[in-house]
Amino acid sequence: MKIIVGVKRVLDYNVKARVKADKSGIELANVKMSMNPFDEIAVEEALRIKEAGHAEEVIAVSIGPTQSQETIRTALAMGADRGILIECDETLQPLAIAKLFKYIAEKEEPGLIVLGKQAIDDDANQTGQMLSALTGMSQATFASKVEFEGDHLKVTREIDAGLESIQVSLPSIITADLRLNEPRYAKLPNIMKAKKKPLEVIPVADTGVDVSSGLSVVEVNEPPKREAGIIVNSVAELVEKLRNEAKVI
């Protein structure tokens, strides 16, 4: 079985996003970019499934500008076997991303596709669900545990009131939630080895996939700032303020 894992290059999660002066988006020039944290968890899960003997190959797939090759190399250094970049300079909506993953899935016929539950840039939380709907592969989102049971998977999912488990048939699409695992760090020898692993680059135009979108960004603004508050000196003063000034208790 092959596993495809999606990796997105995003603004590093430690860097504060700054809105561009012309309100067209977020400033991404000369800032640190990294793999989306949920995708690191997805890569780790794919590797563990392979290491447990359930899969033979892990393919890291990214869709984005040429620099996304660095993100794929990170996945290769963690242990993925090969990479595919669908090169595209414009920002694509999740529907287009899902269609491009479907294109890859038709070529590679994976038993499992593992994605992060959301990217920390657009916070959309859509691609996995859309890919399941488009491919007919079963859907197991927000996974906190994945277990193989014969030719099925039992997936424990994070829901608002606790945990839910479902059984899904293969091929399946899993989206990784925070507690699924703790991703490994790439060791230096593996970083060197990753440079020699195969990485195929496919221009988006060569896929024949329609990546147009009905959704456009009109403008991007800073959120309203909260007015500065006050520092109280004691618990007694705090309780007094909450009772008599804010009137919330």
Partner: peptide, 16 residues
């Protein structure tokens, strides 16, 4: 809608 953990607010228009 908020993006980047609410550090920016995107106004989006749909023609769908």
């Amino acid at each position: 809608r908020p993006i980047y953990a609410g550090n920016a607010l995107a106004t989006v228009k749909s023609s769908d």
